[in-house]
Design a protein around this nucleic acid. Structure first.
Lengths: 161, 161
DNA sequence: ACCATCTGGTTTAGTGCTAAACTCTAGTTT
DNA sequence: AAACTAGAGTTTAGCACTAAACCAGATGGT
């Protein structure tokens, strides 16, 4: 295995420190993500839903008529993944694919069952999340949101390292 | 950075408002996590490593002699998952399972190949993460870390919902 | 009209992950 | 010592997810 090209910067002492600091933040963020994700997965089992399926239900419910491509983009997953997810959920009668009348692409809609499940699962899910964040005051949550937003936006801009 | 309202004024301080607010923070956190996770996965392919394998390599390298159970706990995954992961990595000659001399459990060690790979992959990975967090100043990263730490610690405390 | 291309969507192979059942053995009980 | 128990590790079934190849209908240029 070859050595990988490191970024062409000079190894100044402060850079090393900055690198460490970022890694620590990232590890903590990943930890928090995992814990809450696990907790929601466990909770959603009461509705016979996986987290992925819940996400589909929530997104499609919020934006009916969305296409598979758009859904994949919204969920940050591949179209292949969305396709398989929809296969299962359609077979279970939760969502419906309708081919576009003009142009290409399938439009997605919730069935009655899907809407019903969504209406019960979404509030429960929100309650759970609210509970997990309850340790932070509203002001702290706002602060956290601000930081995450700034970070998130910077991630869209093509590599500015 | 300017503060953005979380929700319409009329919901401020209400249960509904708090619930919404937490959900918004959570969605943003999940988004950030996904993006960085994807970026690291892509980057690690240069070393023929998945994120999970990288994590194993990093953990075992940092704490040689760790048991599988401890590793699973450190990575927040099931022991079954660790077992499979180790199967592949052992087959590839990166790690080694050694049955405990006394008591039960396997102790884990990196092979020479594993150590070499770790030594090249870890710094590259840290550079990438540092780059992704570069949009935040050191002070902001500290702030983010503080909030995540507080949140993380609260998640360990048995359900206070 | 014809062909080339583009682009949603589908399929497939391979990893990651969980839950749950199972194995094996160390340490304990009787 | 024989049997029981508990705990680390393994196995299995099934969903999630990606990358990459594939398919088919739309679009567009000549």
């Amino acid at each position: 295995m070859e050595t990988v090209e490191l970024s062409p910067r000079k190894e100044r002492g402060t850079e090393r420190g900055a690198r460490r600091a970022a890694v620590v933040v990232w590890m903590r963020l990943a930890r928090v993500y995992h814990k809450i994700d696990r907790a929601t997965a466990e909770h959603l089992r009461a509705h016979d839903l996986s987290v992925a399926q819940f996400d589909v239900l929530a997104q499609v419910g919020a934006r009916e008529g969305i296409t598979q491509k758009e859904l994949a983009a919204a969920l940050l997953v591949t179209k292949g993944n969305v396709c398989q997810l929809l296969d299962r959920m359609e077979a279970r009668g939760l969502v419906e694919r309708r081919p576009a009348r003009f142009g290409r692409g399938n439009h997605l809609y919730l069935t009655e069952a899907g809407r019903g499940l969504r209406n019960s699962a979404v509030p429960a899910q929100e309650d759970l999340v609210a509970g997990r964040f309850a340790a932070l005051s509203p002001a702290e949550q706002q602060q956290l949101l601000d930081l995450l937003r700034k970070l998130d936006r910077s991630l869209d801009r093509p590599t500015e390292e």
